[in-house]
Design a protein around this nucleic acid. Structure first.
Lengths: 173, 173
DNA sequence: CTGAGATATATTACACGTTATATAACAATA
DNA sequence: TATTGTTATATAACGTGTAATATATCTCAG
């Protein structure tokens, strides 16, 4: 077996490692989403969730809200337009801004996801790392080992509804 | 100010969030590397470090070692070949395998980086999150806030040598 | 020793992030 | 009001990960 250098090098490779774990988590999440038969990418959800929470948002606000750059937001919103999940029209007061809102179809998808997929994913992730504590490198090692032992799709199918609100509290610090 | 949904949604978006932070860390690391005037990408370092630690490795072993897929390893090694930092030749016993080793130039770069850049980066990251403890979501929030307050390049220029060995111990659990 | 399957690497196409820059609309001042 | 600068979005080019597949080499059963 070969040494995992990214893991061995600790803080030096923390960036690579976070990215790597994040990609793995997203891929695992995609499996759960796909299993529900919705034709959507997991990475598109934060955009829908942002509009669902805050009401119609401009491209720039969406970019800020999901934490990526504006061209990335423009592209993803383009995809969601194609899928008929969102609608875009110029803001009435400023023709430069484009207000993006959920279509009925988009709102339905969000409502459905909120009751089924999202709690399921949150519960699986919580099962993976919800009770962890301690230095970050140790937690990451546990998460990596945990994912190797059992992917998200085989985790946490119970107590799902509890988890979302916990997450929000967490952030409220 | 717009709400950060990825942060708000907690475990549900942990994948996106880890990726986002990882990308940010890597971009910050690149600044430090660039400041040293070496014409190398931060993401290429793990490959060099892997060979430096284990001796010549095949493409497949490198992929495993760095934790990416084989096509990614093939591409990065291609770049390092272009840069003259590594050498590749078929394994003597199996013509399918390609053994990748450091050139003199590559070894020099590693030796130099080991004494200057790597401790610098590790120290900056340790300064950012070395003393953190507690649930992972809280730690991530602190890291995000910390990066916003002061990027890596403005962190941890002292006590650098200590950090690398600590990281290795950490992993030894 | 030959043909079938397995394995290692290379190639291709794609996903999704970035930076840099173009374009359109707004704001302000000479 | 015409010009000049700023702001919002779109587009282009690129980086670096992935999955799917082609190609070359090895292994082994018949």
């Amino acid at each position: 077996m070969v040494e995992d250098v990214v893991r061995t090098l600790g803080f030096l490779c923390l960036g690579s490692r976070l990215r790597r774990i994040g990609e793995r988590l997203q891929a695992d999440t995609q499996q759960i989403v796909d299993a529900a038969g919705l034709g959507i990418q997991a990475g598109q959800y934060p955009f829908l969730a942002a509009i669902d929470r805050a009401g119609p948002l401009t491209i720039g606000e969406l970019a800020q809200s999901v934490g990526i750059t504006q061209p990335g937001a423009t592209r993803t919103i383009g995809q969601l337009l194609e899928l008929g999940l969102v609608d875009m029209r110029p803001a009435p007061d400023d023709q430069r801004r484009r207000l993006v809102s959920l279509t009925d179809k988009g709102q339905e998808l969000v409502n459905y996801s909120k009751t089924t997929i999202w709690p399921r994913v949150a519960a699986a992730v919580a099962d993976l790392c919800g009770d962890l504590d301690g230095p970050i490198l140790a937690q990451l090692a546990t998460i990596e080992d945990g994912l190797a032992a059992a992917p998200l799709i085989r985790r946490g199918t119970t107590a799902a509804s509890r988890v979302l609100s916990d997450a929000e509290q967490e952030e409220g610090r």
